[in-house]
Design a protein around this nucleic acid. Structure first.
Lengths: 353, 353
DNA sequence: CTGAAAGCGCTTACAG
DNA sequence: CTGAAAGCGCTTACAG
C-alpha cells in the first residue's frame, strides 16, 4: 500500500448509488416468483407457511425496504398527508404540527410539510406541489390565509381538515378551539375574584376568534349581571405593540378597569408592559388574563393567567379526523376542543374588594 | 325536484375518487404518443414547436398535474428530503425547519417531517419510514440524539446533514453555530463594560456546545488578562430550574460575580428569577447574558442581552448543503455559522466601575 | 421530430 | 398455494 494513499479511507460523506434490494432480488434467492414475495411480505394467508417464513427471513437478512413510491403507484395511495402552515417557525404552528406528526406516525402516515407564508403565490405553488406528490389529504393551519385559499385547496379533490382557521368553510372539516366557552371561563374567573370593571382588549382585524372570544366575555358579564360598558372594549393588533397602545387608552379612562381580558398572550404582554410603565402593578392594581398559553406565559413577571390551547391535541385530532376521512369513516364536520384556564399570578381580587 | 331533497346539495367534504388526468389523456386528445407529451411537458427541444404548444395548452386546460410518484419511480429520485427533529414543538427545531423548508421549496424539493422524540424505537421507525419513502437525503436536527443514531442513519446510504447536533460525526456533513466565537464576543462585551468578576453558568451534561461556549469565555478572559476563577464556574441543567440553583451558589460566594454569562436563555431565565428573588437587580447589581435569543428573550424584564442563533439561516444552509450533495457539487464538510450578539437591557457597567 | 418499447418496483385479478 | 400477466404513470434509450 502506498503510504498516504488516500483511497484506503472510505469517504462516508459521499454516497454510493447502489440500488436498493427489491422484491425481485428476494424472489431470486427464494426461488419463487416476485408475486409470492409480495404476498408473503404483506402477510397474506395465501402463502405457504414455510415459504413465507423463508421469504421474511431473507428480507430481514438483505435489509429489504419496500419502496413506498412503487407501492403508491400501484395502489394510488401514498399514505402521506400534506400539512400547510403559514410558517412553521411560528410556535403556534409548531405545537400543532407536533400533534399532527405524532398521530400520522402512529397510523403509518408521513407528513409533507409546507410553509405558505400567507403569500398567494407561495400558496398556489404549495398546493400544486402537494397535488403532484399525490398526498392522500391535507391539513391546513394557516389562520391568516386568504379567504380564497380554501376553495383552491378544495379543488385538489382530497379531504381537507382545517385547524383553527379564521375562515372555516363548507368545503372542509375543521378543528377549532372552543373560543366562546374558554373566554367565558376566563371572564367568570375575573368576576369570581370580585371584578366588575373588566375590559376586553381585542384584535382589530375582525377575526372570527376575536368575535367568539368577545362573545364569551359578554356572556359571562350577562350571566353575572355585570353591566356591559362599551368604553371598556378596545382593540390591539394581536401583538405587544398594539396591546400597549390599547392598554394606554384603558388607563386614560376616568375610571380604568380593575381587570383586563386580552385577546391573546402577545397582546397581554404589551398590556403588562404598559401597566408597569405607568407605575401600576399586576395583579395589585390590575388583573390580566391572556389567551393561548404561549411558552412565554409561564415566564412573564408575574406569570400570566391565560387560556391554554392544547395545541398538540388539536393537531392530533385534526390528523385523526383526516385519517378517518381517508378510511371512509365519519369524521365529524366541525370539532371544537375545549381550552383550559391556567391560573397563575397575574390575577387577584381587586383592591377595593 | 322534491322539496328538501338533500341530494341536490353537493357534499364538498366528501371526496370523489376520480383519477387524475395523466399523460395518456393528453396524448389521446393531442393525437400524439404519450412519449411526445412527456417530452413536451419537460420542454424538451426534441418536440416540434407547435405540437409542444398544443400539448402544453391542453395540459393547462385539463389542469394536469404530473405524478411525482410515477416520476420518482422512473427516475429513482424523489426530490424530497427527510427532516428529523427531536420535536417540532420545540421552538428551536421549529425555527430551523422553517429555513429548511424555505430552501427546499425554492429548489423544488419537498420535506418529509418526522419527530424522533429522542426515543430509540421511534428513531428506528423514523429511519425505516424515510428509507421506504426513498427520500433523496436527510437533515437531522436532534441535538439530544443518541450517539448511535448517526451511524444508523448513515446506513441509509443517502447524504446526511447534521444541524447543531451534539455528536457531529465523520459520517456526515454538519452545520453548527460558531459557539466559541459567539461566546467570546459575549464575554468580551461584559469585559468592555468593565466587569472582571464574570461567572460562567454552564450546562452539566457535557454537551459539546457547553464545552465550546466555555472555551470562548476562557479565551475572552485570557486575552483581556482577566484571571480565571474556578469558583465562578457553575452548572445548571439547561433549564430555568437548574439556572436558579446554580445562580444561588454564585450568590452565596464571599464575593459574588458582577456579571453572569449563561449557557442558554432558559438558564438565564432561571438566573434572572433567582437574582430578583434575592432583592438584587439586573443589570444594576448583576449583568446577565444568555445564548439562543429565544422569542422570549425580548420580553423578559429587563429584555435579555443574548447571542442570536440565526435559526432560519442555519436551516437554509443545511438544506442547501444537502442539495449540493445531491447534485454532486462539493458541499463543505463542516459549516460554522456566526452567532450575533444582541445587546438589550440586561447588561450594564458594574456599580463600582 | 416521433413513436414503440422497455423499465422503474410494487399489487392484484386471473388461471391454474 | 403459486406464477404469469397486466397495470399504476412516468422517463428515456432506440429506431426510424
Amino acid at each position: 500500500m502506498v503510504p498516504g494513499d488516500s483511497t484506503r479511507q472510505v469517504d462516508c460523506t459521499r454516497v454510493q448509488n447502489l440500488k436498493p434490494v427489491s422484491i425481485k432480488d428476494i424472489a431470486r434467492r427464494a426461488n419463487v416468483s416476485h408475486s409470492t414475495v409480495s404476498r408473503a411480505l404483506q402477510n397474506s394467508p395465501l402463502v405457504n407457511r414455510e415459504t413465507a417464513d423463508k421469504i421474511r427471513r431473507l428480507a430481514r437478512e438483505l435489509d429489504y425496504r419496500a419502496s413506498a413510491v412503487a407501492r403508491s403507484l400501484a395502489t394510488s395511495k401514498t399514505r402521506s398527508a400534506g400539512v400547510v402552515v403559514t410558517s412553521i417557525a411560528d410556535p403556534f404552528a409548531a405545537g400543532v404540527v407536533g400533534g399532527i406528526e405524532d398521530a400520522a406516525n402512529q397510523h403509518g402516515y408521513s407528513i409533507v410539510l409546507a410553509n405558505s407564508h400567507a403569500d398567494p403565490e407561495r400558496e398556489m405553488a404549495v398546493v400544486r406541489s402537494l397535488e403532484e406528490r399525490r398526498v392522500d389529504g391535507v391539513v391546513v393551519t394557516a389562520s391568516r390565509v386568504g379567504a380564497m385559499y380554501v376553495p383552491l385547496l378544495a379543488r385538489m379533490r382530497v379531504p381537507i381538515v382545517l385547524l383553527n382557521n379564521q375562515h372555516p368553510s363548507e368545503f372542509a372539516h375543521s378543528v377549532m378551539i372552543a373560543n366562546l366557552e374558554a373566554s367565558r371561563d376566563a371572564t367568570r374567573h375575573l368576576i369570581q375574584l370580585g371584578h366588575r370593571r373588566i375590559a376586553y382588549l381585542g384584535d382589530r382585524y375582525g377575526h372570527q376568534s376575536d368575535t367568539e372570544r368577545f362573545g364569551g366575555y359578554r356572556q359571562a358579564l350577562d350571566e353575572a349581571d355585570v353591566p356591559f360598558q362599551p368604553e371598556l372594549v378596545v382593540h390591539g393588533d394581536g401583538k405587544p405593540e398594539g396591546g400597549m397602545q390599547a392598554m394606554e387608552r384603558l388607563l386614560a379612562l376616568a375610571v380604568p378597569p380593575t381587570a383586563v381580558f386580552c385577546y391573546n398572550d402577545m397582546t397581554a404582554l404589551g398590556a403588562l408592559r404598559r401597566i408597569r410603565a405607568s407605575g401600576l402593578r399586576v395583579p395589585g392594581d390590575i388583573s390580566l388574563v391572556g389567551f393561548d398559553d404561549l411558552y412565554i406565559a409561564e415566564y412573564t413577571d408575574p406569570p400570566l393567567t391565560t387560556v391554554r390551547q392544547p395545541l398538540g391535541q388539536m393537531g392530533r385530532l385534526a390528523m385523526e379526523a383526516l385519517i378517518r376521512l381517508l378510511e371512509g369513516s365519519p369524521a365529524g364536520q366541525s370539532i371544537r376542543v375545549p381550552g383550559e384556564l391556567v391560573i397563575r399570578e397575574s390575577t387577584a381580587a381587586p383592591k377595593d374588594a
